[in-house]
């Protein structure tokens, strides 16, 4: 994915977090499974965002990560609290906002 595609993927994930009617865990599962899981580790992101995305991915689905517990998003979310899920949702929004800031800065 290009940086533009990654930004669009995050935009769609944020939109899901906002407009779905489910509890935060369900919204997060839909946002991750339908959008963010499609971003590959090899996709290029600025270094600081790459670290955050890696952490987010580890928190939500570590089945394909070294030293992970081998759990997918549905299982990870089932086992976490609503507060933890809400924090991850805020992280998704924060990464999206920083991607937007970078786009704006690049246009200056």
């Amino acid at each position: 994915m290009t940086l533009d595609q990654i930004r669009e993927t995050f935009r769609r994930a944020v939109q899901i977090l906002v407009d779905e009617n489910e509890r935060v865990k369900e919204r997060l599962l839909i946002a991750y499974a339908s959008q963010l899981s499609l971003i590959r580790p090899s996709d290029t992101l600025p270094a600081e965002l790459a670290d955050e995305l890696r952490w987010l991915r580890y928190a939500l689905s570590d089945a394909e990560m070294p030293y992970g517990y081998g759990q997918r998003a549905a299982k990870k979310l089932h086992d976490m609290s609503d507060e933890e899920a809400a924090e991850l949702a805020r992280t998704i929004l924060a990464i999206y906002l920083r991607l937007c800031e970078q786009e704006i800065a690049a246009g200056d």
Binding site: A33, S34, S37, L38, A63, R72, A73
Partner: peptide, 11 residues
Amino acid sequence: VHANRILRETN
């Protein structure tokens, strides 16, 4: 392949 990546996350 796209659908497979998605469904794997849904338990």
